[in-house]
Simulated scan of single mutants.
Amino acid sequence: MEYRKLGNSDLKVSAVCMGCMGFGDPHKGQHSWTLDEKQSREIIHRGLELGVNFFDTAIAYQSGTSEQYLGRALRDFAKRDEVVVATKFLPRTAEEIERGISAQQHIERMLNKSLENLGMDHVDLYIYHMWDYQSPLYDIMEGLNNMVKSGKTRYIGISNCFAFQLAQANALAEKYGFAKFVSVQGHYNLIFREEEREMAKLCAQDNIAMTPYSALAGGRLSKRPNETSKRLVEDSYAKLKYDATAAQDHVIIGRVMELADKHGVSMTEISLAWLLAKVTAPIVGTTKVSHIEQAVRAVDLKLSEEEMTYLEECYVPHALVGVMAQNTQSAANEKHVWSTGDQTI
């Protein structure tokens, strides 16, 4: 396993991050394809054996049961100071806003609940899961800074945002002496490369770690035409993200398959080898032991410049989908509030 520094933090993380969205009680969330605790533990244990020390979950994953499964497994199989645990929180609900719960109160409540689920006294990385258009940015950044100062998280990260929002947030943090975001978790893989327009450039300039999700496009970059899986069949959100561009993506997927045959490896290894050359640590969702084994093998696979170009040259621009599509209009209408007063930019 290769280990890399996570942006401007002192965290050393495995080049492969185990994504835990596939872990959790299938009866307690929006996904029917998630694994029970016994199956989840087997994969987590195998990942640790292979040198994976970076794990990503969220309080929203199957009503917190993903956090619970991960926490219990790490307690049994690893030493706390030898793993890097990241979890995420969602914006305030309409009910919380109506009740007058502030962004700072919400952040602390969410982190406290995540720590309870995980059975830990702190996380290493606390991630702002998606932009809160109902709260002043100052309130969010102050709330996160309070969690760093309290010792409940070592660092903060962000997910599902635009480059200008990340730049704005870290500029505010710089101005007020708050903790800055050290990582960004966006949608980025071989068939969805819109992060290269601005986000990748900002991260390179400011040494912000990219830890993208959907590294294998919901399984599309790991499956041959005659192969399927429960997730490919049942994951309606992944279908929303990729079905509309299936024809143009098929050409690239075909090239992944071609290079996999050439190297005698899996399609997963080719797809991740490409992404590993671009980012700090892709988040790889796993629902089988073989998934994490293939992901780890990808770390040692180095593609030539010609092969990288061969995989990239057929790409055409994609429309934003999912959370980021929803964010587009919200961002256009947003007043970029820095403080709790009337000051805006």
Rank of each mutant, 00 (worst) to 15 (best):
M1D: 10
E2C: 09
G7E: 12
K12W: 07
P26W: 09
G29W: 07
G29Y: 07
K38S: 12
E42S: 05
L50K: 03
V52I: 15
F54T: 03
I59N: 10
A60Q: 11
S63T: 11
G64E: 08
E67Q: 11
E67M: 06
Y69M: 14
R75N: 10
R75Y: 04
R75K: 14
F77Y: 13
E82Y: 00
V85K: 06
V85Q: 11
Q104H: 02
Q105G: 11
H106M: 02
I107K: 04
K113A: 12
N117T: 05
G119D: 04
D121L: 00
D124V: 05
L125Q: 05
I127P: 03
H129M: 03
H129L: 02
M130P: 00
D132G: 04
Y133D: 03
Q134V: 02
P136V: 07
L137G: 02
Y138E: 04
I140E: 03
I140R: 01
L144S: 01
K152T: 02
Y155V: 01
A163T: 13
A163K: 01
A163C: 10
N170A: 10
N170D: 10
Y176Q: 10
K180E: 04
V184R: 02
G186M: 06
H187E: 10
Y188E: 04
N189A: 07
E194D: 08
K201I: 15
C203V: 08
C203Q: 08
N207A: 10
I208S: 07
Y213L: 07
G218M: 14
L221P: 05
S222Y: 13
K223C: 13
K223S: 15
R224M: 12
R224A: 15
R224L: 15
N226Y: 15
E227S: 14
K230F: 00
S236D: 11
D249I: 07
H250A: 13
G254P: 01
G254I: 05
R255W: 01
V256Q: 06
V265Y: 12
S266V: 09
T268E: 01
T268F: 02
T268L: 03
I270W: 10
K278F: 08
K278V: 08
K278T: 08
V279S: 03
T280A: 06
P282M: 08
Q294E: 09
L301R: 09
K302G: 04
T309D: 10
T309E: 12
E312I: 12
L320S: 08
S330Y: 13
S330G: 07
A331L: 13
G341T: 11
D342P: 04
Q343A: 12
I345R: 13
